[in-house]
Computed example of a mutant assay.
Amino acid sequence: MIMEQHIKSKCKAAYAQLYNIGKVRKYLDHQSAEKLIHALVHSHIDYSNALLIGLPKYLIQKLQMVQNTAARVLCRIGKYDHITSTLKSLHWLPVGFRFKY
């Protein structure tokens, strides 16, 4: 199995779930939205973590962008706002460290 195709399909599925969550986000409180994102989006990011160790940086960056978008949807922050502080406040590890953890 080619990992680039695997990551592409996982990112596509995660973005589809984020799109759906984004449509109903205004009706959800923070805790409910966070549970949805953990269940529907992080499951795609964390799928087969052991196989993703040692991948090229550009492939890991694709998964990191999914996680960044999930944090933006959850916290309702803009596209061009800094995301690092938001990830720290949510206690979410960057994708590269999630593999090793």
Rank of each mutant, 00 (worst) to 15 (best):
residue 53 I to L: 11
residue 17 Q to W: 12
residue 78 G to F: 05
residue 98 R to A: 03
residue 78 G to S: 11
residue 36 L to A: 05
residue 87 L to E: 06
residue 30 H to Q: 13
residue 35 K to S: 10
residue 59 L to K: 05
residue 5 Q to C: 10
residue 3 M to D: 03
residue 99 F to P: 00
residue 84 T to H: 09
residue 31 Q to M: 06
residue 49 N to H: 06
residue 86 T to N: 02
residue 53 I to V: 14
residue 51 L to I: 12
residue 61 Q to C: 04
residue 85 S to K: 13
residue 9 S to K: 15
residue 31 Q to D: 13
residue 68 N to C: 03
residue 16 A to I: 05
residue 60 I to F: 02
residue 57 K to A: 07
residue 19 Y to I: 02
residue 97 F to G: 00
residue 66 V to C: 07
residue 65 M to N: 11
residue 46 D to T: 05
residue 46 D to S: 09
residue 41 V to F: 08
residue 86 T to F: 00
residue 60 I to C: 05
residue 28 L to S: 01
residue 19 Y to L: 08
residue 5 Q to M: 12
residue 68 N to V: 00
residue 49 N to S: 15
residue 58 Y to Q: 08
residue 47 Y to G: 04
residue 86 T to K: 04
residue 101 Y to F: 13
residue 5 Q to G: 11
residue 1 M to T: 14
residue 67 Q to K: 10
residue 37 I to N: 07
residue 89 S to F: 02
residue 40 L to V: 07
residue 84 T to L: 07
residue 34 E to Q: 12
residue 46 D to H: 08
residue 11 C to N: 07
residue 88 K to N: 13
residue 66 V to S: 05
residue 101 Y to W: 10
residue 45 I to T: 05
residue 24 V to C: 03
residue 11 C to P: 04
residue 35 K to M: 13
residue 11 C to Q: 09
residue 21 I to K: 01
residue 27 Y to H: 11
residue 23 K to M: 10
residue 27 Y to A: 06
residue 67 Q to R: 11
residue 26 K to C: 06
residue 6 H to R: 14
residue 2 I to V: 12
residue 43 S to M: 10
residue 13 A to W: 01
residue 95 V to I: 14
residue 35 K to R: 14
residue 62 K to G: 01
residue 39 A to F: 02
residue 25 R to Q: 12
residue 70 A to D: 02
residue 20 N to C: 12
residue 30 H to C: 06
residue 36 L to C: 09
residue 76 R to N: 12
residue 11 C to L: 07
residue 18 L to N: 02
residue 59 L to P: 01
residue 60 I to E: 05
residue 23 K to E: 05
residue 97 F to H: 14
residue 15 Y to E: 08
residue 98 R to V: 04
residue 98 R to F: 04
residue 65 M to C: 14
residue 42 H to R: 13
residue 51 L to S: 13
residue 2 I to Q: 15
residue 48 S to C: 15
residue 92 W to F: 14
residue 32 S to K: 10
residue 59 L to I: 04
residue 42 H to S: 09
residue 11 C to W: 07
residue 96 G to S: 12
residue 29 D to E: 08
residue 73 V to W: 00
residue 27 Y to E: 07
residue 101 Y to N: 14
residue 79 K to C: 15
residue 1 M to I: 14
residue 87 L to D: 05
residue 18 L to P: 02
residue 15 Y to G: 01
residue 78 G to A: 08
residue 91 H to W: 10
residue 9 S to F: 02
residue 44 H to K: 15
residue 3 M to Y: 15
residue 85 S to R: 09
residue 8 K to F: 10
residue 95 V to A: 09
residue 21 I to T: 02
residue 97 F to K: 15
residue 95 V to D: 04
residue 51 L to C: 15
residue 92 W to Q: 06
residue 53 I to G: 01
residue 93 L to Y: 11
